[in-house]
Amino acid sequence: MKFVEFFIIVKLLLILCCKSNSKNILGLFPLKLKSHNLMFDSIMKELARRGHNVTVVSGFPKSIPIPNFTDIDVGDCDRTPVSLFEMEEAYKEHDPFFQIHILTELVKYYEDILRCPTLSKLFHSKDSYDLIITEIFNSDVMLGFVKQFGAPYISFCANPLFPWAADRMGNPDNPAYITYQHSSVILDFKGSTFYQRLFNTVIYIFAKMKYYLANLESERMKRKFFNFTSPSLDEISRNTSLILSFSHFSTNERQPLVPNVIQVAGLQIVKTSPLPKVIRK
C-alpha cells in the first residue's frame, strides 16, 4: 500500500515539474473572405486543440465556443461590397489586370475594420504573444500589431505567392520563367513564346506598382491607428519567419521556393471515415 502511495506522489511531482509548452498565439485575418477563412480557421482550431491559447481577429466567430479559442469579431465592420465576389464578376478572372485592381481596391476597407469597437481592446491590450500569424493578401496594415506586441510572426498566403510576397523572403520571382498566378489562366509556360513572357512581365510590373500605391494607403492607416512612423510596413514584412502557401506543384504553376516558404495545399481537409459513397465510387 505504501508503495502505491509513493508511486502516486512521484507521478504527481513529475506532472507538476513538467514545463508547459502552450503558447499565446494571435491570428489576424480581418477580411470577411469565406474561402480564405476555411483554411486559416482549420489551422487555428488545431493549434487550440493542441493546448495553445489562440486569439483570432476575423469576421467568422464561432457559434459554439471552443476551449483555448477567443474570437475578436470584426465582421460587422467589414464594408467590402459583396458584389465584388458575385459570379458575374468571377467571370472576369481571365483578366489579370482586373483581378489586381480588385485586390488593391479592397485596401480602403481596412480603415472601417481598424475603427471597429471590438478591435479597440486589442489596441490597448497589455497581453504578450509568443507568435502572431497574419495573411499575405492586399495590405500589410495589420502588421502594426507585430510592432505593438514585439512578437515573431509568420504568414499564410491563401494563393500561390503574390509578387510582393516573394520580396520579403528573398524568393525567386523572375517573370521570365515564373508565372504570376492570375496570368496562368491565359499563359502556358510549358511552351511559352516571347510574347507570353513579355505579357507575364507586364503583369508582374503592374501588380507590384499597384501594390506599392495601395501600400501608401496602408502606411497612412498605420500612422493613424498605431501611431508610429518607423519602421515602415515594408520593413516589418521583411522579418517574416515563415510563409505557408496554400498551393501545390501538382495543381499550380511550379516555382522555386526557399526553405521558409512551405506549400500546404489541402491542410484544411478534414479526414472522414468511412469515405462518402460518391468518393469511394
Rank of each mutant, 00 (worst) to 15 (best):
F3Y: 15
E5T: 12
E5W: 08
F7Y: 11
V10G: 00
K11Y: 14
L16W: 14
C17N: 15
K23W: 08
I25G: 01
I25E: 04
I25Q: 04
L26D: 01
L28S: 07
L28H: 00
F29L: 03
L31T: 09
S35N: 04
N37V: 07
L38V: 14
I43P: 02
K45Y: 15
E46D: 10
E46Y: 11
L47F: 12
L47D: 04
R50K: 12
R50C: 04
V56W: 02
S58H: 08
G59P: 00
P61F: 11
I64D: 11
I66E: 12
P67L: 14
P67E: 15
N68H: 13
T70F: 13
T70D: 09
D73R: 03
D73H: 07
V82L: 11
F85M: 06
M87K: 14
M87N: 11
E88G: 03
Y91G: 13
E93S: 11
D95I: 04
P96T: 06
P96V: 02
P96M: 01
F98D: 11
Q99C: 13
I100N: 10
L103P: 00
K108H: 08
Y109E: 02
Y110H: 15
Y110Q: 08
E111Q: 12
D112L: 01
D112K: 02
R115Q: 15
T118S: 14
K121R: 14
L122I: 01
S125V: 06
K126S: 12
Y129F: 15
L131K: 01
I133Q: 05
T134R: 01
E135L: 04
I136S: 10
N138G: 09
M142T: 11
L143R: 05
F145G: 05
V146T: 05
Q148N: 01
A151Q: 00
C157A: 13
L161E: 03
A165E: 06
R168D: 11
M169K: 05
M169A: 08
N171M: 10
N174V: 04
P175V: 06
Y177F: 15
S183E: 06
S183W: 03
S184Q: 09
V185L: 13
D188N: 14
F189V: 07
K190F: 14
T193M: 06
F194C: 09
Q196H: 08
F199N: 04
I203C: 13
I203D: 08
F206D: 14
A214Q: 02
E217I: 09
F225N: 06
N227K: 14
S230A: 14
E235P: 00
L242K: 01
L242W: 07
I243K: 03
L244S: 08
F249V: 12
S250F: 10
E253H: 04
P259W: 11
V261M: 06
I262D: 06
V264C: 09
G266M: 05
Q268Y: 07
I269F: 13
S273H: 12
L275T: 02
V278H: 12
I279K: 07
